[in-house]
Amino acid sequence: MPPPVFRFAPSPNGFLHLGHAFSALMNFESARRGQGRFLLRIEDIDAARCRPEFEAAIYQDLAWLGLSWETPVRRQSEHLADYRAALDRLAALGLLYPSFESRAEIAALVNAREMDGGWPRDPDGAPLYPGTAKSLAATERERRLRSGAPFALRLDMEAARRLAGDLTWIERGSGPDGETGEILARPEAWGDVILARKDIPTSYHLSVVIDDALQGVTEVTRGQDLFRSTAVHRLLQEILDLPQPVYRHHDLIRDAEGKKLSKSSRAIGLRELRSGGMTTAELRSLVGLP
């Protein structure tokens, strides 16, 4: 039986914080206990936000934590053809369509619909796509694409669900409400998700399933904030004939106000803790690891 394969996949759009350290350590130590492999992946598709200094800091922080990983490291920006091939397969199945509304236009559509009695939202609280791009005539789509108009490539969720049928995943951790074991996937809760944009050639949903499959990842260990997203990942795995890893979603490290740590909220970075004299043993204690 081949060894289990774990991965840690940060984005170099900011410095790592305690939440990243917790997830990275969990993956590394799970791989070590199971005599498996530990991979590092750099999710650097968003060129506008990802910077070389953040990527360099990732390597430094993980080395300080005592982690080692296989090389070469997979950098998503070097594998755009893999994501393009997946999009081509989905398009050939008739499951993709471009939408052309701006964020402001989508917000106005949502506001109008909410005034008429509410509008559904996804598990993260964002409103589902309210536009009508799916029903645009093919000639009008082609005209807009040829004009160079910005667009987002969306998954036709209704058609995808019909094609994939019922889906489940194996959860060895737990969801936010304690869900564990065999979980029924409900990707329709996310609506017609974006899989790529004109300026960004893939999305997290698409690239994560492609990367995990190509790297042979068998165990996905990540925070509970991604538990509901697993439904979309299972849908894409099924449609694209990709292997299904086992999932383990862990508790989040939160701040004093109970909010999850994030780069956008300027959570204290590992580099700041390290420069302040914190030891790795103290950090492990801080996040509740032995």
Results as ranks from 00 to 15, higher is better:
157 M>Q: 01
100 F>D: 01
271 R>K: 15
160 A>W: 00
268 I>L: 15
118 G>C: 11
148 G>S: 10
227 F>D: 03
217 V>F: 00
246 V>W: 06
258 G>N: 11
113 R>Y: 10
212 D>S: 07
72 P>L: 12
43 E>P: 07
127 P>K: 08
234 R>T: 03
84 R>I: 05
268 I>R: 15
232 V>Q: 00
180 T>R: 14
59 Y>P: 04
245 P>F: 03
52 P>H: 10
36 G>N: 06
198 K>L: 11
172 R>V: 10
234 R>A: 10
177 D>T: 14
95 L>G: 02
127 P>S: 12
219 E>R: 08
246 V>C: 11
11 S>I: 03
262 S>C: 12
52 P>F: 07
197 R>M: 08
222 R>E: 00
21 A>K: 02
50 C>A: 13
248 R>K: 13
65 L>K: 05
50 C>V: 09
226 L>Q: 02
138 A>N: 09
149 A>G: 10
111 N>T: 14
116 D>N: 15
50 C>L: 10
106 I>H: 01
86 A>W: 04
40 L>F: 08
179 E>L: 07
97 Y>T: 05
141 R>Y: 09
231 A>S: 15
219 E>Q: 13
128 L>E: 04
46 D>R: 02
82 D>R: 06
272 E>R: 11
72 P>H: 12
156 D>V: 08
223 G>V: 07
223 G>C: 11
244 Q>W: 06
3 P>H: 08
32 R>V: 08
204 Y>L: 08
80 L>T: 13
198 K>R: 15
26 M>Q: 07
162 R>I: 05
275 S>M: 14
143 R>P: 00
66 G>F: 08
256 A>S: 15
83 Y>G: 00
196 A>R: 03
71 T>S: 11
175 G>H: 05
273 L>H: 09
107 A>P: 07
268 I>K: 15
185 A>N: 03
14 G>R: 03
205 H>S: 09
81 A>W: 12
221 T>C: 13
20 H>I: 01
82 D>P: 03
47 A>E: 14
110 V>K: 06
205 H>N: 14
21 A>L: 02
39 L>N: 02
96 L>M: 09
117 G>H: 13
289 L>I: 12
236 L>E: 07
175 G>S: 11
34 G>R: 12
123 P>W: 10
159 A>W: 09
102 S>Y: 09
283 L>C: 03
155 L>Y: 04
148 G>R: 08
33 R>F: 12
26 M>E: 00
171 E>K: 03
7 R>S: 07
99 S>Q: 10
254 R>H: 12
281 A>E: 14
171 E>A: 05
290 P>N: 13
16 L>V: 03
158 E>T: 15
223 G>L: 07
234 R>L: 07
127 P>A: 12
81 A>M: 12
183 I>Q: 02
286 L>H: 06
231 A>F: 04
158 E>C: 12
199 D>Q: 14
211 D>W: 00
79 H>M: 10
174 S>P: 00
163 L>R: 13
28 F>H: 01
247 Y>I: 04
94 G>K: 06
8 F>V: 00
7 R>V: 01
101 E>M: 08
272 E>C: 04
33 R>D: 14
29 E>G: 04
224 Q>D: 11
58 I>Y: 02
22 F>K: 04
286 L>G: 02
192 D>I: 01
272 E>P: 06
